[in-house]
Design a protein around this nucleic acid. Structure first.
Lengths: 358, 358
DNA sequence: ACGGTGCTTGACAACGTTGTCGAGTATCGC
DNA sequence: GCGATACTCGACAACGTTGTCAAGCACCGT
């Protein structure tokens, strides 16, 4: 691919990329013939083909996908819009999408919203300019109608959060939280805290609903004061600390996001407060390393990415398909922190279980 | 942006995106005038401009950036090629790059190599087809010559690993490791382990060199048997366990990557082996949460991303610029694990320091 | 009244590629 | 030997946009 003229270290002649015209001239054929060779079309004499291939090699010709797409009326680019790539969940999702896209020869145009509506809109509009093959989107403020409108341009699949009438791949936030809470209840917990972390996420709201539903099902009153939320995840450390120091502190805590979990762990670590039973919604590196391991609702992000991508590809060309809502199954990974009875036994645990340092 | 015709729930007429021609027809002007309005050029009567804007709104017109780029001969896309987006270091780098690119109205084409040369080559070639504005690359197998050749097409900035003659933004692997090792030595450590993790990374090799140099400087013999490496980071847990169980186990361990650190912590956690003094090259979520906190060489990935991006933008149009190698300063974040004397005191620590669970 | 000036606007070519179609040539059957 | 057939190859238009240039028009000073 890379040619081997001696590269001059300075004053590099800004060599311009070879066009199909250059290749044609060099091989002594028409541009159409080059095009045929490039696209592996039949009807080119072996000798001619060889000459063209040689010229392509010599000139380092790589076809301009933009011109190609323009002519053909399609694109080889899929868009991915997520909240933040720093979020372990989304980075895993994007990682699996990108891997699959590479296998299909597709390019990935990446954008993040920071969970801001205005930024989502800007990113969306910018990506529209690229005439995508399809879009995988973690929707923020965009409405069903707007998305259905997009659907007319290219297929769209929502992840993490769903929109009516649009294909989506999500986890069962409500059900998984219900199950996790039931685990707590079965162990005898009655006061269960909920660390919401960043406010405003509908998934988190659904998780809270799941917990409430489990409590109601067991005839346990729900205490609003055990719910901790804050504008930013990092700012949640202090309120959690306060919560766990209360005389009537919860004996178990359900953390709605892995960031909330880490903040909670930080709270537990920084101050000498009792570690409650803990289940985290969303797995994270740390969870399997600390002692006791943090039990998690595992949402399998790479599978979510895969499901979304496959659905997107299936959707290309199938404009009449009924919107399909995939709910990716979750499972609770038991590592110890979630399978702890309340109170009294807790003290035993504290004396017993050494930390990482031991 | 989104128009508001009632979206029909099924059998959606696959409405085709409006072209500049459609807008022109609707507004009763020529396409050139539409183009003028779109690009905020002067010389359009307010009345005409309004009619065009109205038509654009009605038709949801968004210009095709590919056609625009084709005509103008430029692009609004930068490429980013990294090892893996699941790696916390790279996800932070990409995050900051993407944020800056958005501010400049640039799109980010994202690709990962998995640190495989063949995949790097494929990604590179695919991205070349997009005629990038510039490329930020964590090079794997590509040579200086090949990259200098790329430089002729568009500016390129290497991150994490450098190539001669190409702009790069890296950290001082050697120096930082030297300093970290000296910290150990100052505390009386003589047997210092090195957990390399995945083999083959030149940055890791430089880190090992830094450590060796510090040891040599202090007149300490280097024991090759204290170096743990393996094909994959996860597979490193067992050998580390074995190492720490040896009668002549190292009293301090330098982990060359955050993944290696996590594997080491897992080893320490899974088996009842003494936790050595520990410094990690590269910060990670976990590091600040466990007890004791893991001391780290902080390489400030978001600053690296920013520096690389800014350099890239500066390079656009400046073909004659001398390659500039930016070395981003590191600092050692002391959290406890790295400031621990050897042996005897270690036992005290174990009895003393409770883990996360306490 | 007339040429000049300044402003708005549009016709046309071009960016690099591929689809359409027809020209040219060799091969075959009779 | 001749028309038919099959195959290779190229000229040209088109994708959607912007740059160039000139046309059209109102207005000015003399």
């Amino acid at each position: 691919m890379m040619h081997d003229e001696p590269a001059r270290t300075e004053g590099v002649a800004p060599r311009i990329r070879a066009r199909i015209t250059d290749v044609a001239a060099r091989a002594g054929v028409s541009i159409k013939t080059v095009s045929r060779v490039v696209n592996d079309e039949s009807g080119v004499l072996p000798g001619t083909r060889d000459r063209v291939i040689e010229a392509i090699r010599e000139l380092d010709f790589i076809p301009d996908v933009r011109a190609r797409a323009l002519k053909r009326g399609g694109t080889d680019t899929v868009g991915v819009i997520i909240d933040s790539i720093s979020d372990g969940f989304f980075s895993a999702v994007v990682s699996s999408i990108e891997k699959l896209a590479l296998a299909d020869g597709l390019s990935v145009l990446f954008a993040s919203t920071g969970y801001e509506e205005s930024r989502e809109r800007a990113q969306l509009e910018r990506l529209m300019g690229h005439r995508l093959r399809g879009l995988i989107l973690a929707p923020v403020g965009i409405t069903s109608d707007e998305l259905r409108d997009l659907q007319g341009q290219f297929p769209t699949v929502c992840i993490d959060r769903s929109r009516e009438g649009i294909d989506s791949v999500v986890v069962d936030d409500f059900g998984a939280s219900l199950e996790a809470t039931r685990t707590f209840i079965a162990q005898g917990h009655r006061r269960i805290g909920f660390v919401r972390g960043t406010i405003g996420y509908p998934t988190v709201a659904a998780r809270l609903q799941g917990m409430k539903s489990a409590l109601a099902g067991a005839g346990i009153d729900f205490d609003e004061s055990l719910v901790i939320s804050h504008e930013h995840d990092s700012a949640v450390v202090a309120p959690v600390t306060t919560l766990l120091r209360r005389p009537d502190a919860p004996t178990a805590v359900f953390c709605a996001t892995s960031l909330a979990s880490m903040a909670t762990l930080r709270a537990v670590h920084n101050d000498d407060v009792a570690m409650p039973a803990l289940i985290s919604f969303g797995d994270f590196d740390l969870a399997s390393i600390v002692n006791p391991g943090i039990s998690c609702v595992d949402q399998d992000p790479s599978y979510i990415g895969e499901a979304a991508y496959r659905r997107l590809i299936a959707l290309v060309g199938a404009t009449d398909a009924e919107p399909q809502h995939t709910v990716v199954p979750t499972r609770i990974v038991q590592r110890g922190s979630g399978e702890t009875p309340p109170r009294s036994d807790l003290r035993a645990l504290r004396a017993d279980a050494p930390g990482v340092a031991s």
